[in-house]
């Protein structure tokens, strides 16, 4: 996915945070299936609103975490690819 792409989560996804273990289950009601994510991945998915570019998402995470921006950009790109693979993003 290009850094100026505008990833958008599939409509109707529900995120269920599992208290105390930093894991989130995403429910795809349309597909009647669940996908498990860690909190970071879930936060990225929530930012996939069709308005944030992949670069915007990486910038926000860099600001919030103070992590190395190059590494964050690579991680976000890899994560978006995985979310696409799990059919959680609009194609």
């Amino acid at each position: 996915m290009r850094s100026d792409a505008l990833p958008q989560a599939k409509p109707g996804l529900e995120l269920e945070e599992l208290e105390g273990i930093d894991e989130v289950v995403v429910i795809d009601g349309e597909g009647q299936r669940c996908v498990s994510l860690n909190l970071t991945a879930a936060a990225v998915l929530e930012m996939c609103d069709g308005k944030h570019t992949a670069q915007n998402i990486a910038n926000e995470i860099t600001q919030a975490s103070g992590a190395d921006s190059v590494q964050v950009e690579a991680d976000v790109a890899a994560l978006l690819a995985e979310l696409t693979q799990y059919q959680l993003l609009e194609s």
């Binding site: 529900e14 269920e16 599992l18 273990i21 894991e23 989130v24 289950v25 429910i27 009601g29 009647q32 299936r33 669940c34 996908v35 498990s36 994510l37």
Partner: peptide, 23 residues
């Protein structure tokens, strides 16, 4: 991972509650 197992178990509940409540 616990959440992965819970995701699968939620689809195996035999009572009529939604996935969200099941999880």
């Amino acid at each position: 991972v616990r959440s992965v197992a819970i995701s699968e178990l939620a689809t195996l509940l035999q009572q009529p509650i939604g996935l969200s409540d099941a999880i």
